[in-house]
Amino acid sequence: MKRLTLKILTRLPTKYVGTGFILVILLFIYGIIGSMIIMNLNLIDSIYYAVITMATVGYGDLTPHTGAEKIFATTLALGGVGLLAYVFNIILTNVQEKMTKYSKEAKKMRAIEEMDDYYILCGYGRVGKVVFDELVERKQNVIVIDKSEETCENIPKHDNVVILNEDAIEDDFISRLINERCRSIILCTGDDVINLFIVLTIRESHPDAWIVSRASKLENVSKLKKAGADKVVSPEVIGGHDLYYESTKPHILKITVKHDVDEIYDEFKIITDHNCTLENIEYHIPGIETPLTRKIKTMSIMDGRNYRNYLNSHDDQKQALASLYRTVNYVHSHIISGPDKATFKRLIKDLEKQEEIIGINLTNEEISKLTAKNIIE
């Protein structure tokens, strides 16, 4: 009976720890009152008897004799064993849970310390998920912060992703993660007040951090900018895809070049060799400011090989692409994302050996003026 009671009570949920302590106190009061009434003991002896019976010590100096006394002693002993075992089990369980949590957190912090560069993503909702997918697809290191334990458990696990089940606005938690290896902080929570508070907190300790924030309401865009956000994006206007691009703006390169179709693969190989992603290609029609845009979004050399083989086996497609190149006088721009500015410098240096570079980060207006004046043939 003793073992059965212990087994049942120690399996109770840990949320009842407070109730357990209250029940122990009530049982203790029951033991004192019962000892005085049923056992006919004085107050001091009643306290003593209640304690040794609940603890199942039983020195034998006070022994029940009548049936009522034995029933009282039995209920007090069983209740004491069960409740004390439950309370101690809860204490040990809580300690174990905290130790496990600290161990996991320590492991995650070590993983963050080993990251060369990373993005901090606050909030994994509908918009946050889109940004997360964009980052992971490009093999970027990501720290995801979300206060919902259930949400954190459902986030896909990757080697380059660290998931922190924390509240970003508590104890300047997010500020402690920002250093020279942090590329960007992306705030995707659906609460503009929380985003505003995080921006203010970060700006206070990290004035140079690159912060991109979501604004659920258009009227809060100006407030977030005044608070210190470098870019504010409203999903009412653009989506998570554009939020990602804004966050990577310090690491986005637009390079305008001139070459023919046969150099496509060699150029793409150079880009992938530098661990960069070819996001888009813009074809500039002479004199027209708005370019023709072609979405690429790949950093796999295999994609480049497959496309080269496709053109070599489909002469009509290759001729059509060659015709497009002739239409734009072979002038087009590559939108490239990469790890850092130093990588871009090396990339540009290697591309210069392969092709003619017209300019870096030129605006469409500048390019259209160049083509309109026939500066570029």
Rank of each mutant, 00 (worst) to 15 (best):
H65I: 15
E113L: 03
T100V: 03
V161M: 03
K226M: 13
I163M: 01
K225W: 00
F88G: 14
I90N: 13
T53R: 07
S247N: 08
G20I: 06
I238F: 12
D133E: 14
D45E: 15
S337F: 01
M54S: 14
K157W: 00
E282T: 03
K98L: 11
Y325T: 05
Y119D: 04
P286Y: 01
Y265K: 14
G239W: 00
R346S: 14
D316H: 11
Y86C: 09
I186E: 08
D315L: 07
K101A: 08
K297Y: 08
H206G: 09
E219Q: 12
L177Q: 03
A322D: 15
L9N: 06
R110K: 10
I91K: 01
D262Q: 09
E352A: 14
L187N: 07
L200E: 12
R138Q: 11
I71T: 12
N312E: 14
D117N: 10
T66L: 06
L311C: 07
F197K: 14
G338Y: 04
S46V: 07
S234G: 13
Y310V: 08
D171V: 00
C188L: 05
Y124S: 02
I29C: 12
K104S: 07
Y325V: 05
A55F: 08
S337H: 03
I90C: 14
E246N: 10
S333P: 10
T343Y: 00
S337Q: 09
Y86D: 08
L177V: 05
T56V: 11
L164P: 05
L278R: 01
K258C: 15
V328T: 10
R346H: 12
G338I: 10
